[in-house]
Structures are given as structure tokens and as C-alpha cells.
Amino acid sequence: MTALTRRRPVNQPPPLFRLLREQVSAKRWYIHILLWIAVLFMGFPLFYAALVSTQNNAQMFRLQLFPGDSFNINLQTVLDRQIARLLFNTFAVATMVTLGKVVLSVFSGMALVYFRFPGKSLVFGFILAALMVPGEVTIIALFRLVALELGWGNTWTALVVPAVASPTGVFLFRQHFASITPELSEAAQLDGANPLQFLLRVLLPLSRNTVTALVVIMFIAAWNSYLWPLLIVTNPDLQVIQVGLSTLDDGVEIGRTYGPIMLGAVIASIPPIIIFVLMQKQFLQGFALTRHK
């Protein structure tokens, strides 16, 4: 019924198609129901975590499906266990990694598009081939290099510096710059701009979407990284939230107290989820080429 009273679209389809579409629209209520089932299915794990974060162990093991009374206690536990410190560390490290990746990728992309030099395609191949090597493959040797040969164990340098060179970023910016008409840089050169001026005044304003895409992908990846900080940082004052999560236990009860850990899990998930949901369009654009490096 609603389909008949709805205002007609501008491109009015021929009668036969209209009939077909109305047939489809009559069934739509069950699409809504299926979608709600999917939404609940997807949302349930984190929803349950949020629920447990307000409960103590007894309430959780009773299968209580409404909020308990322990949220304040859990929050206090989590704060006592330095969650603010962990979150700040994660934010600082993820920001530095993301910033480094964007800056280095912009410069490399620029060098690969706006300059002529011998061996250009070799350099590009060298950068691109690194996409093929996932961090997990080199992690043992990298650990040996960073901890033993460079002596960076238990520093943020170890978390940031090995991560800032990004083949994905270079590829993203190279493709983006190559899609910008060369007349722009010719005009800039005629006006006497040097490469840096061209980059700051012309290229960056045109690259807002690409920068956002890279920031979203890289920030989420850096915020969520676990294995490398777990290996290289043992000092709790420098640790990141993903590794620190399991230390949010209250340490009083025997066995785990789940409330504080779930609260920590929820808090740790909020920043990346917000960024991802708000920036989904740019994220999608940036994901033409991936492997989060």
C-alpha cells in the first residue's frame, strides 16, 4: 500500500517494471525482520560485554540479563589499574605511527609522480614488494634486531619507528597523485613554485580524502595492534591498552573478575568504532588496495 501512495520517482519506470518493484516491496517487512536479526547477531557480543561491565562475577554467573550494580566498582578498579595511562599511551603511539605514515607516504608518492630520476620503477618495485611480507613473517628477526642489536626494548621508539614506512600509503598516494592532471604542476612551476610549495598549497588540499582514508585505516590498525607491543614492551607504564586489557582484573577475587575486563574491552573499542563508523565512506575509497602496513 505504501508503495502506491509514495511520490513517484523522477525517472518513472515503464509499467511492467513498476509492477515488479511493487511485488518486491510487499515482501519488505520480512527483510526488516531479517536485518534486525543480523544487527542483533552482530551487536550481541559487545552488547553483552557492556552488560557484564556493570555486573560483578556473581551477577554474571547468574545469567542476569539486566545491568547489575557494580559499574562504579568496576570503573574504580579499571582506573586503579591505570586504564587512563594505557589509553593515553595507545593514543600517543597510534597518533605518532599514523602521522609518520601519512607524512612519509605523501613525500614518497610525490617523489614517484612529480620527479624524474633514474631507477624510479625499481624504487617503486622495492617499496611495493614489501606489501608481500606480512609483519608476522619477520617478527622474530625484527624482535632480535630491535631488542638486541638496536637496544630499543621497552621504548616507544620500538613501537613507532619500525611501523612508519608504509607501502600501502605510498601506493595510495602515488595512485592519487597520478590521477591529478599534470597541468596543475606545470602551472605551479610556471608561477615559480618549488616542489614543497606545490605540495603544501596545491597537492594537499586536493588530497583530503586520500589522507582521511589512510588515517582511518592506519589509526585503527595501530590502535588495535597487539603482538608487537606484547613482545617488545614489558614496562607497564609504557604499555598499550590491547596488551594491558588482561591486567585490568581486580586482583582480589580468585580467578578472573570479568566486569572490569569487559569494561576495559568496551572502552578500548569505542575510539576505533567511532572513527570507522564516521569515516566509512573514505575508508571504502582507501581500501582499493590493502594489507594494513
Binding site: 552482530m42 559487545l46 553483552y48 560485554a49 574491552a265 573499542s269 576505533p272 572513527i275 570507522f276 563508523v277
Partner: peptide
């Protein structure tokens, strides 16, 4: 949104 949830949180939850 579950894409943005870290492996650690997934494991713990």
C-alpha cells in the same frame, strides 16, 4: 562496526 574491534577484545569477549 565489528571490523574496528581489535582481536584482543574479540578474544576476551
Amino acid at each position: 562496526w565489528p571490523y574496528a574491534v581489535s582481536g584482543v577484545v574479540v578474544g576476551v569477549v
